[in-house]
Simulated scan of single mutants.
Amino acid sequence: MSTYREITNQVADQWVAALKNAEQAVTKLSENAQRFADSIPTPALPATPEPFAKLNEALSERLPKPSEIVEANFDMATRLLSAQRDLTLRLLDLGAGSKDA
């Protein structure tokens, strides 16, 4: 019979494989969409008025890149999950100690 950890590892492996398949599918779709978009002529847009162009430039310099946002949020989630795991294990240890008394 499989242990709980073995079962959870198998489930995790399946989830990771599914995510990798989804990544490949999205990448292919994005590449195909880009090729399709490149083949469609786009009309020329009017020039952005100067005040809006300056505002856009000022804001874009101060905003983080999307990849920075993703990295920071996943790092935070990892830290929070680790702290939550440590707290839960500590509480289980404390609970197990009170049953022995």
Rank of each mutant, 00 (worst) to 15 (best):
Lys28Cys: 02
Arg35Gln: 10
Ser30Met: 08
Trp15Leu: 14
Leu55Cys: 00
Asp38Lys: 00
Thr78Arg: 15
Tyr4Ala: 10
Pro51Met: 00
Leu29Thr: 09
Leu45Cys: 04
Leu63Pro: 00
Thr48Lys: 02
Thr88Arg: 14
Ala96Glu: 15
Lys54Ile: 03
Leu91Pro: 05
Asn56Met: 09
Leu19Pro: 07
Leu59Pro: 04
Leu81Arg: 12
Met76Asp: 12
Asn56Gln: 12
Tyr4Met: 11
Lys28Leu: 07
Ser67Ile: 05
Gln24Pro: 09
Ala72Arg: 10
Ala37Thr: 03
Ala83Leu: 04
Gln24Leu: 12
Val16His: 11
Arg62Pro: 00
Met1Arg: 10
Ser60Trp: 03
Thr78Pro: 08
Ala53Cys: 00
Ile69Ala: 01
Ser67Phe: 04
Val70Trp: 05
Ala77Gly: 05
Ala101Gln: 15
Ala22Asp: 11
Thr27Asp: 09
Leu45Gly: 02
Glu6His: 00
Ala17Ser: 15
Lys20Ser: 13
Ser30Tyr: 07
Arg90Lys: 15
Leu94Tyr: 13
Arg90Asp: 11
Asp86Ser: 04
Arg85Gln: 13
Pro41Cys: 03
Asp100Gln: 15
Thr3Arg: 02
Ser39Pro: 00
Leu81Phe: 10
Lys54His: 04
Met76Arg: 15
Lys54Tyr: 02
Thr78Phe: 14
Leu29Val: 07
Lys20Ala: 12
Pro51Arg: 02
Ala58Ile: 03
Lys20Tyr: 08
Ala17Gln: 14
Gln14His: 14
Arg79Phe: 04
Asp100Ala: 15
Ala58Thr: 06
Asp13Gln: 12
Ser30Trp: 05
Arg5Val: 11
Thr88Gly: 07
Leu92His: 11
Leu81Trp: 08
Gly97Lys: 15
Gln84Lys: 14
Asp13Ile: 05
Thr42Ser: 14
Asp86Val: 03
Pro43Phe: 09
